[in-house]
């Protein structure tokens, strides 16, 4: 299980622009490097990120081999309703890691 850190405000007023931040621990091995004995190190990366707010996709991203280890994302959305914000990362071979946070909108 990869370590995940999320930053979501616990409450907001309706219509507020809120900042969401997400960090996941992952080596993001590019596939272009070689080990100390000259052997190729296989590519091992997260390829997709998706953030949903109460089931609706509000942000998504595709990662390539050029993305640094432990990718960090920060983006904004408008607080519309009380609900769950879910962050989901998908590995190149389909494995999925996700975590979520609740927000109360008044």
């Amino acid at each position: 299980m990869a370590s995940i850190r999320l930053s979501v405000p616990s409450k907001a007023a309706s219509g507020d622009v809120i900042e969401l931040k997400a960090l996941i621990q992952y080596p993001m091995e590019s596939g272009y490097r070689r080990g100390s004995r000259g052997e190729a190190i296989a590519r091992d990366i997260i390829t997709k990120f998706e953030c949903t707010y109460d089931g609706e996709v509000i942000f998504k991203a595709s990662f390539g081999p050029g993305v640094a280890a432990n990718p960090f994302l920060s983006f904004h959305t408008v607080a519309t309703k009380t609900g769950t914000i879910t962050f989901k990362w998908t590995h190149q071979h389909g494995e999925v890691w996700s975590d979520s946070a609740e927000i109360i909108v008044t």
Partner: peptide, 12 residues
């Protein structure tokens, strides 16, 4: 303290 990736290790 959020974006600093060192905190992944501190948390663990």
């Amino acid at each position: 303290d959020f974006a600093n990736p060192g905190f992944l290790w501190v948390d663990r």
